[in-house]
Design a protein around this nucleic acid. Structure first.
Lengths: 109, 109
DNA sequence: CGCTTATTTAACCGATTGGTTGACGATCGC
DNA sequence: GCGATCGTCAACCAATCGGTTAAATAAGCG
């Protein structure tokens, strides 16, 4: 049986999809705009978005011919709870996270 | 390019492997003992352990003919930092985690 | 209406995944 | 040394993945 947690972690295991989530952290975006920075077909991005959507990490709403993608952090929270359970972590270091973010964005460029 | 984070999330995306990590939370274990509760060949478990090991989530040390598996939460911390960056999370709810743990263990049984 | 833009679908491809079985190399106990 | 145990390796299998191109669907624009 495939659990929600399976889907979330599988969705997060791809750099392209993590980069998409990072982009959506800034603002909601249309599919075409999500695809723009990537060296990849629109169809491929569409598939990635489907995977993120099935995992519950984003929601998609169609207005007119444009489909808007919006981050939905609920699923992430669930996964985060699972991970934090392994315990020996210091309180979250946001500086470390920002370095991470920059690195991910740099890799993508 | 396959990053560390790719490997960690991919490793976590399988219920069997998450259950193994949960077991190792209690104590270090030999490969055969890890395999015991699962309805799956020893070779399959051996592969799962290799994946966890390459992701840095466990370390394995051979003493005699027994190979001991030990949880190594460093890689998890890295992934956790990434996730927490999505921010809108309440401080970690350990009760929620314990419910999760119980559920995972129940699923496995 | 007819063109353009937005997005998904279908068919295909090679690589990877998660499992199997069977053979194999190491190591322990006797 | 001999037999049992520990664990991995190799070959195989069906299913999924991450990408492609080409066609199809849908909606806005003039």
């Amino acid at each position: 049986m495939e659990t929600r947690l399976d889907l979330v972690f599988a969705a997060l295991s791809d750099q392209t999809r993590r980069a998409i989530l990072t982009m959506l952290l800034e603002d909601d975006m249309a599919v075409t705009d999500v695809a723009e920075p990537f060296d990849m077909s629109l169809a491929a991005i569409s598939k990635h978005l489907t995977i993120l959507s099935r995992a519950g990490l984003i929601t998609q709403e169609k207005r007119g011919r444009v489909k808007w993608c919006k981050l939905d952090p609920d699923a992430l929270r669930e996964a985060s709870v699972w991970m934090q359970g392994f315990g020996q972590f210091e309180p979250v270091n946001l500086d470390a996270f920002e370095r991470f973010l920059e690195e991910e964005l740099r890799d993508e460029a």
